[in-house]
């Protein structure tokens, strides 16, 4: 197939970027979207032009690196797929594909399609961990976790920190990400101990980093490659409210 591409090019964080048009011939329907970009870059390098910078690593939807806003969707077409799982069969011969970086004040563009997601690291550092001494890996069944809680915690733990929730949200809110982390740990015995402090600190950090607030549009849930649901946001609100009313600061 022949594909027309409209890609955001920006030399560095300070530069003023603009959209660049490319045409790519011989695109195979079975290629992944990232392979298609690789072949575009090979072509550009051969022509002596600057290749397009984009992030990717695992290619199996677990690292959360790949982060492209494709034709109006974070991670492109398809439900619960990361960019690395999008294939060219989702497009037609002659299609124009517009590729943009995540857009959010808290995710500044570094170069072309790459954004700085350090804000998520800072969020994790604010409380997305367990600091109590949990000892060695416990014997099976020595720490009992109910099936429902275990399943829920596992669902939340599926979050790969890609930032598509922020990219999809009209308010650039990080609520789904924070909700996944806070819920995952609050549901498990080792994480419960610090649940209140964690909710308070992560939300305070989220506000400080310039993410917007949640207006419950549900856009995050619709685009999350891991199917994290907004019921976790309700849980985060619950955790935060009860922590605010009970934890002395």
């Amino acid at each position: 197939m022949k594909i027309k591409l409209n890609i955001w090019k920006q030399a560095n964080a300070k530069a003023k970027g603009k959209f660049e048009r490319y045409e790519l011939d011989g695109v195979d329907a079975e290629m992944s979207f990232l392979e298609m970009l690789d072949s575009l870059n090979e072509k550009l390098i051969k022509e002596g032009k600057e290749p397009v910078a984009f992030e990717h690593d695992c290619h199996e939807a677990i690292c959360g690196c790949c982060s492209l806003y494709i034709n109006g969707h974070p991670h492109g077409p398809g439900k619960e797929t990361a960019t690395c799982q999008v294939h060219m069969r989702s497009f037609k011969d002659g299609d124009t594909i517009t590729v943009e970086p995540w857009r959010a004040k808290s995710f500044p563009v570094l170069k072309d399609l790459m954004v700085d997601r350090k804000a998520f690291d800072k969020l994790m550092a604010a409380g997305g961990f367990i600091s109590i001494d949990a000892g060695q890996a416990p014997d099976a069944n020595s720490v009992l976790v109910g099936k429902i809680d275990a399943d829920k915690a596992f669902d939340a733990a599926a979050c790969i920190g890609c930032g598509a929730c922020v990219a999809a949200c009209k308010n650039s809110s990080a609520m789904l990400f924070v909700a996944a982390k806070v819920s995952q740990l609050a549901l498990l015995p080792q994480g419960k101990v610090e649940a209140k402090r964690r909710a308070l600190n992560m939300v305070a950090k989220m506000d400080e980093l310039g993410f917007g607030s949640c207006t419950n549009t549900g856009a995050c849930e619709a685009e999350c490659p891991k199917g994290i649901g907004i019921d976790f946001i309700a849980k985060l609100n619950r955790e935060y409210l009860s922590a605010s009313f009970s934890e002395a600061e």
Partner: peptide, 29 residues
């Protein structure tokens, strides 16, 4: 106050408007 602050969280918007499924009312409260 919240609406203004939320607008500031994305100084540069997308070229292709969001095609994500979300109710019109929820985006225009």
């Amino acid at each position: 106050y919240i609406t203004l602050k939320n607008m500031k969280a994305r100084p540069q918007g997308y070229k292709v408007a969001s095609k994500t499924k979300a109710s019109w009312a929820s985006k225009n409260m």
